[in-house]
Amino acid sequence: ETGKELVLALYDYQEKSPREVTMKKGDILTLLNSTNKDWWKVEVNDRQGFVPAAYVKKL
């Protein structure tokens, strides 16, 4: 879809709370919100949640 910003997972991340999502290094995720410098909201496999901003980079 146009207008979607994507990020690349630089590291594996295992969710530690229900508000977070698990990702694997190399995953491409849809970026939903990056206003917080530490935690970015992403969508992966129809799930939305937060990942550490340092673990992903914008494509």
Rank of each mutant, 00 (worst) to 15 (best):
K16L: 09
D12Q: 03
K57G: 08
N45R: 14
P52C: 04
P52T: 02
T22L: 03
L59A: 05
R19N: 14
G49A: 04
T35G: 11
E5A: 12
L31A: 02
F50S: 03
L32W: 06
L8N: 02
P18Q: 09
L32E: 02
G26V: 01
N36Y: 08
E43C: 12
L10A: 04
L59P: 03
N36A: 08
N45T: 10
V21F: 13
V51P: 00
G26D: 05
V7D: 00
L32N: 02
L31M: 03
K41R: 11
E1G: 14
Y11C: 14
P52V: 02
L32Q: 03
G3N: 12
L6E: 07
V56H: 00
V7M: 05
Y13M: 01
T35I: 09
E43T: 07
V44Y: 15
K24F: 12
D12T: 06
K58D: 04
Y55H: 06
K24H: 10
Q14W: 12
T35V: 09
P52F: 03
K57E: 11
P18G: 09
L29Y: 10
L29S: 02
R47W: 04
L6W: 13
M23H: 01
T35L: 09
K58C: 10
K24I: 08
M23V: 09
K24L: 08
T30H: 10
S17D: 11
L32I: 14
L59F: 09
V44L: 15
N36L: 08
N36I: 06
D38M: 14
T30W: 14
V21Y: 04
Q48W: 08
K25V: 07
A9F: 01
S34K: 07
L6H: 09
D38W: 15
A53P: 04
K41G: 05
Q14P: 06
K25Y: 05
Q48G: 06
W39G: 00
W39D: 01
V42G: 00
E20L: 05
V21G: 02
D46E: 12
G49W: 03
D46H: 13
V51I: 09
D27Y: 05
A54Q: 10
D38I: 15
A53T: 06
G26S: 03
G3C: 15
Y11R: 15
Y13C: 02
E15F: 06
E20W: 04
A9H: 01
Y55E: 02
D12R: 03
W39N: 02
K41C: 13
K57R: 14
L8E: 11
E20H: 06
L31V: 06
K37V: 11
V21R: 02
L10F: 03
R47Q: 07
S17H: 11
L29H: 03
M23R: 00
E43N: 06
T35R: 10
N33F: 07
E20N: 05
T22N: 06
A9Q: 01
D27S: 08
L10D: 02
L8G: 02
P52Y: 03
Y11V: 11
K24W: 11
V51L: 02
T30C: 09
E1T: 14
W39S: 03
Y13A: 01
V42D: 00
V21N: 04
Y55M: 11
E20T: 08
K37Q: 11
A53M: 05
V51R: 00
R47E: 05
Y55Q: 05
Y11N: 09
D46G: 15
W40K: 01
K57L: 14
K41V: 14
K4A: 11
D46F: 10
V21Q: 03
S34E: 14
W39A: 02
L10Q: 04
K41F: 15
E20K: 04
T2Q: 14
V51M: 01
N33L: 09
E20P: 05
V7Q: 01
K4S: 10
M23L: 09
T2C: 15
L32T: 04
T35Y: 09
L31I: 05
T22D: 04
M23S: 00
L6M: 10
V21W: 05
L59D: 03
K16F: 05
T30R: 14
L31H: 01
R19S: 12
A9G: 03
E15I: 06
E43F: 07
L10S: 03
L10H: 03
K41D: 03
T30N: 08
A54S: 14
V42N: 01
T30G: 08
L8F: 09
A53H: 03
W40S: 02
D27P: 00
Q14H: 14
K4W: 11
E1R: 09
L32V: 12
K16G: 08
N33R: 07
W40V: 06
N33P: 02
E20Y: 06
D38L: 14
L29F: 07
V51E: 01
S17N: 12
K41T: 08
N36M: 09
G26T: 02
K37L: 10
V42E: 00
V21H: 04
E1M: 09
N36T: 06
L59E: 04
L29N: 01
L8C: 09
T2L: 13
G49L: 05
V56T: 04
Y11P: 01
D12M: 03
R19V: 09
Y11K: 12
